[in-house]
């Protein structure tokens, strides 16, 4: 149990009167790549955002590396943390957004070194050296001085991945990282992610790219209506789904 990077138990979340997450359980072990599939509105993004507390939970519990992001355990009870303490715990969780969310007033390099300097207390020299290396790793050597608007969508998303990696996260969350991209740019981002997966990064990936799930996932989780319907290896879930809802969803990709 304590070896899991991510543990979610009975996670519930409502917006107003609609319950979006109705008791999610999920464990992710170190080095594992978990792909979350599910129809639009099934709560995939909400669940990812609950993991790093961009959304608060209504019930249940999520721990990352054995600790609650938003709470301390004292005397057998959870106690809410202050915003600054929550910020400190978020640094171990990288997140890549559908819309990239790069900082448009900073160059690619400045985007990457901002948090290592501000949060990890790295020196500018050291952070810059690592950022140059990370940019090369995502195939963008030499683009340090480019502003986000001067880069293609696929390049922007790879800068965003490098920015998240610069924090040396224990867990990376990807929320439909290729959905905002032109079809011909999807491949370069997925290739980067596959390389990270095989390098042993622990990742939870929400995506509609079934081929990525098949090739890179250690485990596929199918969500519908705020619940985990089934999970297993890509072969089990994609090629031999047990549930009618999974079959109905997958039939759209054939």
């Amino acid at each position: 149990m304590s070896t899991a990077v991510l543990q979610a138990r009975g996670v519930r979340k409502s917006f107003g009167h609609t319950e979006v997450l109705s008791g999610i359980d999920l464990d992710v072990t170190p080095g594992e790549t978990v792909v979350v599939l599910g129809p639009s509105g099934s709560g995939k993004s909400t669940f990812l955002r609950c993991i790093n507390l961009l959304e608060s939970l209504d019930a249940g519990r999520i721990t990352v590396d054995g600790r609650d992001v938003g709470y301390d355990v004292r005397n057998g009870r959870l106690h809410e943390l202050s915003p600054n303490e929550i910020a400190r715990r978020r640094k171990d969780i990288g997140m890549v957004f559908q819309q990239f969310n790069l900082f448009p007033h900073m160059t690619a390099l400045e985007n990457i070194i901002e948090a290592p300097i501000a949060v990890l207390g790295e020196g500018r020299r050291e952070a810059t050296e690592r950022a140059v290396g990370l940019l090369a790793e995502v195939g963008l050597a030499g683009r340090e001085k480019a502003y986000p608007r001067q880069l293609s969508g696929g390049q922007q998303q790879r800068v965003a991945i490098a920015r998240a990696l610069a924090m040396r996260p224990k867990l990376m969350l990807f929320d439909e990282p290729t959905s905002a991209l032109d079809p011909e740019l999807v491949g370069e981002v997925l290739a980067t992610m596959k390389r990270l997966a095989s390098a042993g990064l622990t990742m939870v990936v929400v995506t509609h790219e079934i081929s990525f799930a098949r090739e890179a996932a250690d485990r596929v989780v199918f969500m519908d209506a705020g619940q985990v319907v089934e999970q297993g290896t890509p072969e089990q879930v994609i090629d031999n789904p047990q549930h009618e809802r999974t079959r109905a969803f997958l039939s759209r990709f054939l």
Binding site: R88, A115, A118, A164, M167
Partner: peptide, 25 residues
């Protein structure tokens, strides 16, 4: 609002997000 969330996801404090990310934009 995605700008603030990107800063939060990187573990930045709210004051720093305001100063370095929101205000300059």
């Amino acid at each position: 609002p995605g700008q603030r969330e990107a800063g939060q996801a990187l573990g930045m404090k709210n004051s720093r997000i305001m100063k370095r990310i929101i205000l300059p934009q």
